[in-house]
Nucleic acid binder design. Structure first.
Length: 330
DNA sequence: AACATCCACAACCGCTCTATC
DNA sequence: AGATAGAGCGGTTGTGGATGT
């Protein structure tokens, strides 16, 4: 049977969007809010596929998107999160609220992949550039085969992932553009918009001002379903980021270990269950060093997200974790 | 100046998941 | 329970500008 296409392919325009089309789309969103994309082509007269309209909005016209060069900090964050998540661009993007997953993916493919290749070559030739890559989170690329090397690499990656998470969470609190706009500057700055669409951004500014109160109901509904990083600039870190982490650790260690750990528990720094877990681990270690009852992922989870209280404890857990337990998974 | 090649990025494609009826 | 629409996601492609010959 198959799915019906999202729109009639005949007469649908493809390729780059013109400023006029952008304005038509933005005008529609101003009026109706993002959502009901199927109706957009007919209501606006745009000869575009509904999906194309949605993507154009999500990846380009949506408020709060930062364009232009990636900063060193952003680059490091991407590298570190990529090491953690793999090519889960949406998950990575949720930690960089001003960037879209498409942007990050493109940046990775065009810039960072090259650094990756260079790193591999430099490693063969023993270049001093190695330090750069270590600092930027590329140690996971090491072709280390020995167990000791692997463990050191893991340790380094976890440190960097932890840093990245910390940085990302700081970013969320401090640089989310629409939060700042709402909280600090009701006049709304245009600095976060694409320079090429500044005219459109002005339309949006007016819309945002009026919509914060008037459309709060509809826009919150629509926005919440529009994108992984919501339009109000506050990525759903608890659900999305949290799950991303879980997936990351599962993919890292091949363990299905989060079934008993809810996202709420995940967000807690010292949940009773986590404490119980640690006790359990210690107990297990005393009884049987090679068979920890609690997956490594939970240890890492606790350690990553609890800077102060669990650091030393979990580090101990980590360093005493038996590699034999997970070695077959690699 | 003309052409070829490279590169970055926007956009598209196809698949999957979820919500709704 | 199955069909459908809406949306998310990752991979790939197309296009236009920059650079080299």
């Amino acid at each position: 049977m198959g799915r019906l296409p999202c729109c009639d392919k005949v007469g649908v325009k493809k390729g780059p969007w013109t400023p006029e089309e952008d304005i038509m789309l933005v005008s529609y969103v101003q009026e109706h809010g993002p959502g009901n994309w199927r109706a957009v082509p007919t209501k606006t007269g745009l000869r575009r596929c509904s999906k194309s309209c949605r993507l154009r909005w999500t990846n380009y016209l949506r408020p709060g998107i930062k364009r232009g060069n990636f900063t060193d900090q952003e680059e490091k964050t991407i590298i570190q999160l990529q090491a953690l998540f793999g090519n889960k661009w949406a998950a990575i993007a949720s930690y960089l609220p001003e960037r879209t997953d498409n942007d990050i993916k493109n940046y990775w493919n065009t810039h960072l992949k090259k650094k990756l290749k260079k790193f591999q070559l430099d490693q063969c030739s023993g270049s001093d550039d190695h330090l750069f890559y270590v600092e930027n989170g590329l140690t996971h690329l090491s072709s280390s085969n020995s167990r000791g090397q692997w463990e050191r690499t893991l340790q380094t990656d976890i440190n960097m992932a932890k840093k990245a998470l910390h940085n990302a969470l700081s970013l969320e609190n401090s640089t989310s553009p629409l939060i700042n706009i709402k909280q600090e500057n009701p006049q709304v700055s245009s600095s976060t918009y694409a320079s090429s669409t500044e005219n459109i951004s002005r339309l949006l500014q007016g819309w945002m001002r009026s919509s914060t109160s008037e459309n709060s109901k509809t826009s919150s509904n629509n926005i919440a379903t529009t994108d992984s990083s919501s339009c109000d600039g506050t990525p759903n870190a608890e659900s999305k980021g949290g799950m991303g982490l879980m997936e990351a650790f599962e993919s890292l260690f091949g363990l299905e270990s989060f079934e008993s750990s809810s996202s709420d528990e995940f967000s807690q720094t010292t949940s009773p269950q986590a404490e119980a877990t640690k006790v359990e681990i210690k107990k297990e270690e005393n009884e049987n060093v090679e068979a920890p009852a609690v997956p490594l992922s939970i240890i890492l989870e606790n350690w990553l997200l609890d800077e102060n209280t669990l650091n030393i404890q979990a580090k101990d857990d980590l360093t005493t974790f038996s590699f034999d337990e997970i070695a077959p998974l690699f």
